[in-house]
């Protein structure tokens, strides 16, 4: 019988690798019996789904965080120097 500690580890690892058939059944049984681990599993799933929207957000979100003006200026300078001739 799995402990919650073992189960939580498997719940995290199944996001990384396919579980073996034994692990899968042991986890399924444990989840059936344990409210906290069911919540843990849902929370990890949620976290993954939400985080994976972040890149998409960066790609479309024009109001995202911006560079400080000084940083902009520094970068502009470096780009001009290192690209002299191509600009």
């Amino acid at each position: 019988m799995l402990t919650c500690k073992d189960a939580s580890r498997l719940i995290s690892e199944r996001q990384e690798r396919p579980l073996g058939i034994g692990e899968l059944w042991a986890l399924r049984l444990h989840l059936w019996l344990c409210v906290s681990c069911r919540r843990f599993a849902r929370q990890l799933g949620l976290l993954r789904r939400v985080l994976r929207t972040l890149l998409r957000r960066m790609e479309t979100d024009v109001d995202g965080p911006e560079l400080a003006p000084e940083a902009r200026e520094r970068i502009r300078k470096v780009l001009a120097e290192r690209n002299a001739g191509t600009f």
């Binding site: 919650c4 939580s8 409210v35 919540r39 849902r42 789904r49």
Partner: peptide, 26 residues
């Protein structure tokens, strides 16, 4: 991670139900 669990391997505290906050998560 050990601190989250009692000696018998069960969670120390019952985990909260986060509900289904997909919208607030954005």
């Amino acid at each position: 991670t050990h601190a989250c669990f009692a000696e018998d391997g069960h969670w120390h505290e019952r985990l909260s139900d986060w509900g289904n906050p997909e919208k607030t998560l954005q």
